[in-house]
Write a protein that binds this DNA or RNA. Sequence first.
DNA 1: ACTGTAATTTTCCAAATGTATGGATTGCAA
DNA 2: TTGCAATCCATACATTTGGAAAATTACAGT
Lengths: 326, 326
Amino acid sequence: MAREPIEDSDAFVTEVCWHYYVNEMTQAEIARMLDVTRLRVNQAIQRAKSLGFVKVHLESPFLPRIEMQENLKSALGLRRAVVSPSNQSSYDYHRSVGAALAALLTERLATGQWKSFGVSWGLTLDSAIRKLSRQSHPGLEVVSILGGTAKGSTLNSFGIASGFANVLGAEYSVLTAPIYLSEGIDRAKFLSQYALKDHFEKFETLDAVLLTCSNVSEKSFLVEHGLLKDFTPADLIAAGAIGDVLGHFLDKDGHSVSADLDNRTVGMPLEQVLGVPEKIMAAAGPHKVEIIKAACRRGLVDTLVTDDTTARLLLEADAASPTTAH
Amino acid sequence: MAREPIEDSDAFVTEVCWHYYVNEMTQAEIARMLDVTRLRVNQAIQRAKSLGFVKVHLESPFLPRIEMQENLKSALGLRRAVVSPSNQSSYDYHRSVGAALAALLTERLATGQWKSFGVSWGLTLDSAIRKLSRQSHPGLEVVSILGGTAKGSTLNSFGIASGFANVLGAEYSVLTAPIYLSEGIDRAKFLSQYALKDHFEKFETLDAVLLTCSNVSEKSFLVEHGLLKDFTPADLIAAGAIGDVLGHFLDKDGHSVSADLDNRTVGMPLEQVLGVPEKIMAAAGPHKVEIIKAACRRGLVDTLVTDDTTARLLLEADAASPTTAH
DNA sequence: ACTGTAATTTTCCAAATGTATGGATTGCAA
DNA sequence: TTGCAATCCATACATTTGGAAAATTACAGT
């Protein structure tokens, strides 16, 4: 080795960003003032952006899609729908929906008097965390409502709950268990463990849950990393599954296709979800259209956060199949 | 007249900003997608910025100046000091300090349990309002602690209090009176008016006040627009005045130079300010160094929000004059 | 002192952004 | 219809930004 990389301290990065965003200086000016190269300033700003140091935040983000939101509400029987504009050309589901969820969550935390809310996990929630501004909610508890997988630590059960809690200035409680129990483990016995029992009791008093969903495919994170050997995507599809919510694979009407798998799933039961006062689902992408509709039909969702691409598909599909209304 | 300017609706502006800031599309891409000219997109973004639609917000803005903050605290006997980096080349006092005050206020509102706080007026507070994100504090009341002037409506007493209340989601109460009473008006009688009496009583229970200050010069807003004919800047300077806090002109030690003028000032008395739990002064600029020091010496300040240019001058001046310590 | 390595700076270039200008277009009035 | 006035558009151009080479520097081991 030859030379240590000089680490741009957080203080330096913050100062650069302050000059850039607040004082609206150009990068070259800042470089001259602080006597560093422009490159360094440029990198500092980019690092700050990627680290989430700098949060941009639109004051009234949902004006443009109001009409679509209204249509979604009536089509899917929702209490509230949030549709964010997406970038059709380089389509990234998570970014836009994450930001919209962050804005919604901030609003709900400010006005609704939540004492605790449940979170599952996935890229969408991870993205929301990175869009949230730091807040302080001392009495609030973030409760993980789904077991985790071995891989993918940050967007796993643990990382998501603690991530929310950290940025919101809240407490958190994680579900220290795998999402699916291996064969041979007695579910009742496993769940009766001291720590788990306490945790499961918290599900009863949640003021809200943040749900996600996914379709059934090899690319799905859950299928790839979490699913048990005994269940293949093909099996599930054959049984009518079109996607999953909280690890439960559902058919078109939102009913579980495998009581067997349900029995091994460690997390909040869907029946219990139905009783939560605010059921917020954040999901987007053409491949999620069907499972979103299924989840709505089952009554698992009262607030849907999605993007306009997905919303359009949801409305089209809905208009095409008149059976939906029931 | 020939043609109406097509007004870019808020919805359009918001959508453009969402694509630009959240989806990180280029202006050209957005223009193509929405089928407008790039110029229009560019203008929409600029308008959004100037309207305060888009708020940028750094997560840990005060790391860089910690040392200076500590020095200020001990030099001026403060409980807390916030020093924001300023743009020395095109120096604008208000922008940077306004943003710093906005960040501090957001933090205090989240953690401190304020029921009401008082505000004076001026460009610095106006700038802070425009940096604040929309919040919701239903139980909070913003109380104007200083009468107004006829001119300069937005940064006047009324505009500042309602501006804070609006963005913070709070109530407000304004002081519907001129800052200085004309000669011949009986102060006691005037202040005993029904509406004013109620308002003055609110001063007793304020959890905090946001103060500003100014020096004595023809350029000072207060001197230019609010001051009575009977008092000229020259008179005040001759009497030892170096600036004003809440319309009271003070000397080096923070004592009023004109009991006569004090008697005509409509606002919170300085004696009463001393008893407020949090006394936050936001002020910057070389011309304010002396009055800031005077206000601190009088004990009118326990939290100072300023920029690094001013902080440096405050510390230099302080080191030069050993009398300060007392 | 020499050399190899790794990081930084310099330099350069392409893309994106901000701004100005002449000409086309539109709405209105005579 | 014509002329006027104001606006919008296409274009061009200067600045700023992002990123990627080539050149330089600092360090460690020989």
